[in-house]
Design a binder for these strands. Structure first.
Length: 383
DNA sequence: AGGGGACCTCTGC
DNA sequence: GCAGAGGTCCCC
């Protein structure tokens, strides 16, 4: 009995394909989910029925480009749940809300809710998700003071912000990311997401609320493997079970990690299957307010092994990972993760067009290999 | 404690 | 073919 989910299509007859972003032209076409159709009717009876927003209104956020530039915040590997739905426009779920953001050249960022049960809450949740409690202007000026290269990069990569994501969905996204590429990660995250409540369709993209732990528990390893998760299928199933076994509740347990020290939070996350130093750092930085967490990917590791000679020839372990994190924190301070995020973005091939060639990191992988793996080999041969 | 190797799958050289 | 992808686990 696979009846298609009930959808109310709200289309304005003359509306263009992409939602009009200008203040003069605020209404858009969108698709709204009729939430009354649910597998849990009793819940609907208990709660006031969400009011789908037929006429999507664009509202200003009053955030400058220096504080938030969407193309350097959304498609840069922090989240795999948002989609580009127009020029300088991105759409994605925030809790139970479906939101679009649009950058206007000289008028900051605007947003609209395609679906929500409460517009006031949506705006509050949006500011929280955008991590607006932290001023990029302030922390970047400190990075500039201590790093000439950061200063030069920042000139071209203004507004690269770190989001404050929901810990549960951030965790499963990054478990999917291990030893993986972005298109495939996105596909896997989409599969998991599709188990949550449908929120709407914008520009041909379906969006879902991230599934609850109870819904995630319905996923079997076989189903995940067939969906192309490979060996990560086991990680997902086991991590769901581990979270469900927490006395205070898995979601609450994850949220409680926001109050811990970075190392404690990393240690707790690392008890979960599929969570090593890299994934733990990503979740810590992108969801747990651990602003000095440093996701040590292969590139950071290669740079670090040259900066810290003792690390050359060793492997990325929790211990050596901490060495790298400490080095970054010593250099950049308590928001080191935000600094590293910009350095990471500057290395993305997709963002290189924003940088003058003089700022391209000319380190060829070959030469890095000679100095790291080659070094390791030489050391080994010496013995 | 730390190194070796396997692991799903897909893309690019 | 085979490394590499924003790694992690298991074993020795």
């Amino acid at each position: 009995m696979h009846s298609p989910k009930s959808i109310i299509r709200v289309k304005r007859p003359n509306s263009p394909l992409s939602p009009p972003p200008t203040p003069q032209q605020r209404q858009s076409s969108t698709t709204v989910h009729k939430k009354a159709i649910s597998k849990k009717p009793r819940k609907i009876l208990q709660n006031p029925q969400p009011v789908p927003i037929a006429d999507v209104k664009w509202k200003p956020l009053n955030i400058n480009k220096s504080e938030l530039y969407l193309p350097l915040t959304f498609p840069t590997g922090q989240t795999f749940r948002w989609r580009k739905t127009g020029p300088l426009q991105y759409t994605g779920p925030i809790g139970p809300h479906l939101v679009s953001l649009r950058q206007l050249e000289d008028d900051g960022v605007w947003y609209c809710c395609h679906f929500t049960d409460n517009e006031d809450n949506a705006r509050i949740d949006l500011f929280d998700f955008l991590n607006m409690g932290i001023s990029l202007d302030e922390i970047w000026s400190e990075f500039r003071a201590c790093d000439q290269r950061f200063t030069e990069l920042a000139l071209h990569l203004e507004g690269a912000r770190v989001l404050r994501q929901d810990p549960l969905e951030c965790l499963f996204q990054f478990i999917c990311s291990s030893n993986n590429n972005i298109p495939r990660i996105t596909k896997m995250v989409d599969f998991i997401s599709s188990k949550g409540d449908f929120l709407g369709n914008v520009e041909g993209h379906d969006f879902f609320e991230f599934p609850s732990l109870e819904k995630l528990a319905l996923l079997s390893e076989n189903e995940l493997r067939e969906a192309g998760f490979g060996y990560r299928a086991k990680y997902i199933v086991r991590t769901v079970a581990a979270l469900q076994s927490k006395p205070e509740g898995g979601v609450e347990w994850l949220l409680s990690l926001r109050k811990l020290d970075l190392q404690e939070a990393i240690n707790c996350l690392s008890t979960l299957q599929g969570v090593g130093p890299k994934v733990a750092a990503c979740v810590a930085l992108f969801a747990l307010d651990q602003h000095h967490a440093i996701p040590v990917d292969t590139h950071v590791w290669q740079v670090a092994t040259r900066l810290i000679p003792e690390l050359a020839g060793t492997r990325l372990t929790p211990k050596t990972c901490k060495r790298v994190t400490d080095a970054f924190v010593t250099k950049y301070g308590k928001y080191a993760g935000w600094a590293q995020n910009l350095l990471f973005i500057s290395e993305l091939p997709s963002q290189k067009s924003l940088l003058p060639a003089s700022l391209w990191n000319t380190d060829e992988k070959v030469s890095v290999k000679l100095q790291t793996k080659g070094h390791a080999k030489m050391k080994k041969e010496e013995n």
